[in-house]
């Protein structure tokens, strides 16, 4: 057993981080608010780093990697708060043409969760929908809702209300559809880990630089304990999400039962989304009044964390599922 990141894994995470720092600085991310969350050239560059096609076989133009590596990449995307339907496009790559290369942007939506809100509606070339039969279908292009609601909760996740006729060609069914959901759950969790980690760093940086009563507020235990709790949540969630990635691959290889992978992704997303929301709140609190302003980035992290928490298993649903595994 060696549950530390290998040298290759560290290099992959670092490469993703430096790409995001270079191409998705917060200034750029904020510009995307007015562009429906996706800018084509940047999306294409993202694809160039392998974000979408990394898990495809080398013969299919991928890197032959797996979920163990994918969770590390998505954690970095989360740290940088890269917007757009990243998870959906990653999962559609290889199944829908042009996705791995970044030529087509694919979204996903759960029809079982109402109101049915489609994210990044103006950016989508295709939309996958998870339906009540447990299938993943490709929604007919004409049925993709395009009209953004005027005030999305997360400015980087514009949404449109879906109408009728969201059926379409089945893309994943049965075991494949179940695997699709497990991977989506793990990757959403990984993104959330990135948010949890980044908001701790932001809170720590501010607590060191902000002086009140002639000392940095980070020297007060009342403040440092908030941040210590946040850091602790991150470490537990990160370990759980990394375990989810590894366990998914082992189940895929037939080494472990699928039920274990199911449990691992459930625990991972539950802990990660809880950590992301709680840490973003902590970060905001540490920032005081400034944290409540639009110009400080904290609210963007908090809002995205809540977007993640609302899909592919809410905290209530995931906790129920965990309870089912225990008894």
């Amino acid at each position: 057993m060696d549950f530390e990141l290998s040298a290759d894994e560290v290099a992959l995470a670092e490469a993703t981080r430096s790409f995001c720092e270079g191409r998705f600085p917060m200034k750029t991310v904020r510009e995307l608010i007015d562009e429906g969350g996706v800018r084509r050239e940047l999306w294409k560059e993202l694809a160039g780093t392998g974000v979408f096609g990394m898990c495809l076989a080398e013969s299919e133009g991928g890197a032959g990697l797996a979920m163990t590596e994918a969770v590390l990449v998505f954690e970095e995307l989360g740290r940088a708060l890269v917007p757009g339907p990243l998870v959906a496009s990653h999962l559609a790559a290889g199944r829908l043409s042009g996705v791995a290369e970044g030529d087509r942007v694919v979204g996903m939506v759960e029809l079982t969760r109402t109101p049915v809100l489609v994210e990044h509606p103006t950016a989508l070339d295709a939309l996958l929908a998870f339906n009540a039969r447990g299938e993943v279908v490709e929604v007919a292009a004409a049925a993709i809702p395009r009209e953004q609601l005027p005030q999305p909760f997360d400015p980087l996740t514009p949404v449109a209300l879906a109408g009728h006729g969201m059926g379409g060609r089945v893309v994943f069914r049965g075991r494949e559809a179940q695997a699709f959901v497990r991977r989506a759950t793990a990757l959403l969790g990984a993104f959330a880990v990135g948010i949890a980690a980044r908001t701790v760093e932001m809170g720590v940086a501010y607590a060191q630089q902000r002086y009140q009563f002639d000392r940095p507020i980070g020297s007060f235990q009342a403040v440092k304990h908030l941040l210590a709790d946040a850091a602790t949540r991150t470490e537990v969630a990160r370990a759980a999400v990394h375990a989810a990635g590894v366990t998914l691959d082992d189940a895929e290889a037939g080494i472990l039962p699928v039920a274990l992978a199911e449990r691992a992704v459930t625990a991972g997303k539950l802990l990660a989304c809880d950590a992301a929301v709680a840490n973003a709140r902590t970060c905001l609190q540490v920032h005081g009044g400034m944290g409540f302003t639009w110009e400080v980035d904290v609210h963007l992290y908090l809002k995205r964390a809540l977007v993640l928490a609302s899909q592919f298993g809410t905290a209530k649903e995931l906790s129920e599922r965990m309870a089912g595994y225990v008894h």
Partner: peptide, 9 residues
């Protein structure tokens, strides 16, 4: 269930 997740983590 939340507790079970925490222990898994």
């Amino acid at each position: 269930g939340r507790l079970a997740a925490e222990l898994d983590g």
